[in-house]
Amino acid sequence: MRSSLTARKTARTALLTIGYVLMACFVLFPIVWILMMSFKQFGDIIAYPPRFLFSPTLDNYEQILFGSEAEQAAGQMPNFLGNLINSIIISGGAVIVSTLIGVPAAFALARGALLGAVHVRFTVLSFRFGPELAIILPLFLIYKQIGLYDSYVGMILVHQLITLPLVILITTGFFREVPVEIEEAAVLDGAGIWSTLIRVLVPTVMPGIASAMIIAFIFSWNNLVFGLVLAGGETRPVTMGILQAMTFDQIRWGQMAAAAMVAAVPGMIAAVWFQSRIIRGLTLGAVK
């Protein structure tokens, strides 16, 4: 009896270990491999069989971030640092606008007892489900006409399609979890709806709002297709810069890898530092 129990326990541990190893390989190997590649010299990158041991270098990062202006001017290298700054402006701006507009909207949806609030929620959700080109191809013509093509304002506006639904859906989920009694106390003290929201509820759900902002920022940062259609040379985001690094006459693997790592930084920081909040936010945004 006892030995069969230990045997089962061992089998269980073995099975779990195999599962974890498979999962780790699948999830982590690509990131680790490209991270290694980003520190390799050209010779180490093209070596076959692949090299797992090599003398690391920061050259790729230096070249992608501060590479020669002559090459950028000749169109042989993307202005990656410029792309990074563009992405920070566009995604940062988009998240700030979405938070200012989306948090009151979420509060109204969670607390307003409004007729049709359910429909509003599904409408907000449904903006996720259509192909982006249905909106942004015609928007390309409109932007060209009214001068918003390749402008920060235009990019921040169109990124609302990503960030606003995320902020609204996730924050609504967090507001719903706050007991109504908290506001009732404030109302009895004579506070209006706006001041209840700002003084009582926003501080209470601040961590929730923060995770909504982080998630919205990442998905805005990660987007390619809006930049592809609506950004020209002035506002090109980081996801386009990295694509350019790949399509120049010769593929510079090391620089591409370094660019990939830099482009993935916001997501990775979020995953490591705000892990549980991100997971909760994503779950609330989808489930509630």
Binding site: M23, P30, A260, A271, Q275
Partner: peptide, 17 residues
Amino acid sequence: TTVVLPLLVPPVVAGLM
């Protein structure tokens, strides 16, 4: 922590990787 990582990497970056 690590399992969410790929979801937060830009899809275009994942494609190139």
